[in-house]
C-alpha cells in the first residue's frame, strides 16, 4: 500500500511531472534539428524531460519520508485580490485611472480581514489622486485619467 508521507512534496512532484511532460510533448512538434544545429524544439524537449524526471524523483521521495501537510489555502484573499486585479486590467483603458484604481483599492482591501468602509474609501480617493498626479501628470505614463466622456 502506497502512503503519501510528505504531501507537499508529493503534489509539487506531480505538478512538475505534468508541466515537464507537457512541455516535452509540445516541443516535439517543433523542429528538432541535430545536436550541431539545434532546432527550436531541441532544448525545450531536453529540459521538459528533465523536469518530468526530477518530478518523478520528488514524488517517489515523498512516499519515503515524512513531511508537513499542505496548509489551508487562503481562498478569500486569493480570489478577491486576484479578481480585483483582473477587473482593473479589463477596465483601465476605458474607465481611466481614477475610477479603475479606486475600484482596485476597494476590491483588494475587501480581500483582507478587516474592512472599514470609511477608511478604505479615503484610501481609494487618496491613491487615485496620488497615482494620477504622480504617474500621469508627473511621469507622463499613457493612462487615460477619466472615462472617455469626461473629457
Amino acid at each position: 500500500m502506497i502512503k503519501i508521507r510528505n504531501p507537499k512534496d508529493f503534489w509539487a512532484g506531480l505538478i512538475f511531472i505534468a508541466i515537464g511532460a507537457g512541455a516535452a510533448i509540445i516541443a516535439r512538434d517543433y523542429p528538432m534539428g541535430t545536436i550541431a544545429r539545434m532546432g527550436a524544439g531541441y532544448f525545450p524537449f531536453v529540459l521538459g524531460t528533465l523536469l518530468a524526471l526530477v518530478g518523478v524523483i520528488i514524488t517517489l521521495m515523498a512516499l519515503g519520508a515524512d513531511g508537513e501537510p499542505v496548509g489551508a489555502f487562503a481562498l478569500r484573499p486569493l480570489f478577491v485580490i486576484l479578481g480585483a486585479v483582473v477587473v482593473f486590467g479589463v477596465i483601465v483603458k476605458t474607465l481611466g485611472m481614477v475610477i479603475s484604481l479606486a475600484l482596485l483599492v476597494i476590491g483588494t482591501a475587501f480581500g483582507g480581514h478587516e474592512f472599514k468602509l470609511k477608511e478604505v474609501l479615503i484610501l481609494a480617493v487618496v491613491m487615485a489622486a496620488f497615482c494620477t498626479l504622480v504617474f500621469i501628470k508627473g511621469l507622463g505614463l499613457p493612462f487615460p485619467v477619466w472615462p472617455a466622456f469626461g473629457q
Binding site: 477596465i91 476605458t94 474607465l95 475610477i99 472615462p147 472617455a148 466622456f149
Partner: peptide
C-alpha cells in the same frame, strides 16, 4: 453607472477620431 460610462465611452470612440 459602469454600463452608462461604457456606453458613453463607446459613443465617443466611434465618433472620436
Amino acid at each position: 453607472a459602469t454600463l452608462a460610462a461604457l456606453l458613453a465611452g463607446f459613443g465617443l470612440i466611434l465618433c472620436g477620431p
